[in-house]
Computed example of a mutant assay.
Amino acid sequence: MKKWILSTLVTCSLVFAAACGGGGSDNAGESGGDTEESVSLKLAHTGSDSHQYNIAAEKFKELVEEKTDGSVTIEIHGNANLGSEDEAVEQILDGTLDMTTVAADSSFANTVPEMNVFGIPYIFEDRDHVYSVMDGEIGDELMENVEEKNMTGLGYWEVGFRHLTNNEKEITTPEDVQGLKVRVQPSKVWEAHMNALGASPTPVDFNELYSALDQGVVDGQENPLPTIDSMKFYEVQDYVSLTAHTYSPAITVASNNAWDKLSEDQQAAVQEAVDETTEYQREELENKEEEILETLEENGVTITEDVDREAFSEATSEVKDVLSEEVPSSLLEDIEAAK
């Protein structure tokens, strides 16, 4: 009698275990199982709710959750709520933050020196030139440098072509910049850039820039039109000069710790979402440019389109020399050849 009871219990236990085992995988998070472990990823950035970072982050969240049937969810933390860009990169490296998107040529370049290339003035002709570089072998090679620094590189979203703004005067030539205190990103290429123009480079964290402009700590700054609009810098700046002196990509990375939590299928879905977001954001930002110019004009900003870019390019032609140890000459040659 006892043997029959024991046999019955064992049989029931095996049936129950088989039912709970799904596809038989020992790890529910592994690719190929009927179910995948749910993962929530924190994505931090320093932009406002309408900033380029957040336009991309919101679309990325939508796509990831759709492609993974909700097994991967994205928590967006904008407005520098989890720290500056420098702090976000540090958190990615130590594994306490899952994802971030930051300007590649800012403090990120202090970790991945090759990204300083995006701080070199007038290295890109136009958007087509930029995208041929970012979407091709050069972009892949730069991302390999990211991987070597113990981060998972996912892609390049857009910050955009950068323009000079200030609260003192209209700028059409390099001479007009002389003597101005201009906020720069915390990277030596930007100090060299402003020194070449005779300005006084002043490092200020992005999340503190509005107040620095408002209080006169700096006279001006340089950023793309969508940034000037989304961060409302037009409230504290009277002049925008369309210098288009550099292009900044938003490098999008994950911590290795976070990436390893995902199954292969989840990783593929996240990568696909990054790539689709890249195309979506580029189109969105290009379509918004005329609208932004109208907003600036409505707020009393003087927009200078007739800028002597050739003179600016000549005045800053030696800035690249300060990066001889960080940026290989072969990289510059490859970018030039991609025009």
Rank of each mutant, 00 (worst) to 15 (best):
K2N: 10
S7I: 10
L9G: 04
C12N: 09
G23Q: 06
G23V: 02
G24T: 05
G24H: 05
D34S: 04
E37F: 01
V39R: 01
L43F: 15
A44I: 10
S50E: 12
E62F: 06
I74D: 04
E90Y: 04
T101M: 09
F108I: 07
F108N: 08
T111F: 14
T111N: 14
E114C: 06
R127L: 15
R127W: 14
H129M: 07
V133N: 00
M134E: 12
G136A: 01
G136Q: 00
E137C: 07
I138K: 08
L142D: 03
V146Y: 01
E147L: 02
F161K: 08
L164V: 13
E168M: 11
E170T: 14
E170H: 07
Q178G: 11
Q178N: 12
K181V: 05
V182L: 11
Q185W: 05
V189L: 02
V189P: 05
V189G: 09
T202W: 03
T202P: 02
T202E: 15
P203C: 06
V204S: 08
N207V: 09
S211K: 09
D214I: 00
G216Y: 03
V217Q: 13
Q221A: 15
P224H: 13
L225M: 11
V236S: 08
T246G: 08
K261F: 02
L262C: 11
A269H: 03
Q271I: 09
E272F: 02
V274L: 13
T277M: 07
T277L: 07
Y280S: 04
Q281C: 04
L285T: 03
T295D: 14
E298L: 09
A311N: 01
E326K: 11
L332N: 04
D334K: 15
A338M: 09
K339M: 08
